[in-house]
Computed example of a mutant assay.
Amino acid sequence: MNLLYWSLGFFLSIPYSVHADSPKEAPEIEPCTVRSPHSGSFFDLNGLHIPDPSTVKSKNARDYSWNATGWDMGYNFTMNFCGGIVERLEDFGGVEGIDKQLWRNVSAYYRQGGKVYSIGQQNMQPVIRGRKMVLNYTDGSPCPELRKRADVADNLTPREIIDGDDDDKENEDEDKDGDKDEDEADRPKSSTRRKTTIISMLCERDPLMPQLTLSFVASPDECTYVFEARTSAACASIQKSTQTLSPSGVFGVILMIAIIVYVVGGCVYSRMVLNQRGWRQLPNYSLWAGIFGFFKDVVIILTSSCARFMPSRRGYSQVNGGIGGMGSSRSGRDSEAENRLIDELNEEWDD
């Protein structure tokens, strides 16, 4: 019998077909995650995201973003990770220098003088800088006008040349005046830079520490803001692969593999060790044969029970025999003859 060979061929063809049909591909990187090109470590910052309370079904949903104290800046900072802030900026009068349709994309801001200033739009792509992980927010509110070194130089009083040559002095003054006019003409009246935020993500493995410790570090020119965030989300973790099968599908695959191993292993053992042939090569053949016989008997019993309800020719002959009372009289004579025969046999037995 070729059952053993067919089973072995089917079992050995499974790994080959899987690898041939589905080539190995690198897993896709989800938003707000990054893999280090140096060490290969995987980082996921989605755990720091605070969702919009209107989209959360929980009654105790958090309705405020992460906060950081500004210390000597005179104001505090509010931000979120992997998404816009939770607060509604419309209630504060909007954001300075940002279009209204982009207010929901603001990921960091501060309030000063009754106005709201954005320090960066949302960014879902962390960056690895050496051994550091950095998250940048850009395209915030316009930066204030910056004083340039040329302005400071203009305020300095020029020294006189002590050589008695007044003509050279006048020519030099004219040249300076001409250069000054050209510089003022070329100098932009307002800055085009926008506020940005740099967040350095540091790994914190202490289980007693809060989920996130956000600290303001510096702002050198009121246009760039540097923060430090200590959190366990910044520690290397294992990337969760996308599951293509449902739990029932995974269970079905495991069950199928177990059945194949059971059948193939049992057939090999029965054939090589017990020298069985035919259907007796199957493992526990007597058990499966008994189960099959049990179901066979059940089917026979059910079919015989149902056959009783089927119409038969006997009922049809009784109906015909009962016409005119002939059937009833004949059955009565037969019963009397049987009774007499029984009585005679009893008398002979007594004698």
Rank of each mutant, 00 (worst) to 15 (best):
N2D: 13
Y5C: 04
W6D: 04
S7W: 06
L8D: 00
A26C: 01
E28Y: 02
I29H: 10
V34N: 00
S36P: 00
S41N: 15
F42M: 01
F43Y: 15
F43M: 01
F43L: 07
L45G: 00
L45A: 02
H49D: 00
P51V: 06
P53D: 04
S54P: 00
T55G: 06
T55I: 04
V56Q: 07
K57P: 00
K59M: 07
D63A: 15
S65L: 10
T69K: 07
G70E: 09
D72V: 10
G74R: 13
F77C: 05
M79L: 15
N80V: 06
G84D: 07
I85D: 01
I85Y: 03
I85K: 02
G94C: 04
E96L: 03
G97W: 01
N105H: 15
V106Y: 00
V106H: 03
S107E: 04
Y110D: 08
Y110S: 06
Q112H: 15
S118K: 02
Q122T: 12
Q122D: 02
Q125Y: 07
I128P: 00
R129F: 10
R131C: 00
L135I: 08
Y137P: 01
T138S: 14
P142M: 02
E145R: 15
E145D: 12
L146H: 07
R149Y: 03
R149G: 07
D151T: 09
N155T: 13
E160R: 08
I162H: 11
I162R: 10
D163V: 11
D166I: 11
D167T: 10
D167H: 10
D168L: 13
E170S: 06
D181N: 12
D183E: 10
S190R: 15
S200K: 05
M201E: 10
C203W: 01
D206Q: 11
M209V: 05
S215Y: 02
F216G: 05
A218G: 03
Y225P: 01
V226F: 09
T231W: 02
A233H: 13
C235E: 06
A236N: 05
A236L: 02
S237N: 03
Q239V: 11
K240C: 03
K240Q: 12
S246I: 04
V253Y: 05
I257Y: 03
V263M: 11
C267S: 03
L274C: 11
N275Q: 15
Q276D: 09
R280G: 03
P283W: 05
Y285Q: 12
L287A: 12
L287F: 15
W288N: 01
A289I: 01
D297Q: 13
D297H: 08
V299I: 10
L302H: 05
T303E: 14
R308V: 15
R308K: 12
M310I: 15
P311A: 07
S312G: 13
R313D: 12
R314C: 02
G315Q: 15
Y316D: 14
Y316V: 08
G325E: 05
M326F: 14
G327H: 03
S331M: 09
E338S: 09
N346G: 04
E348M: 14
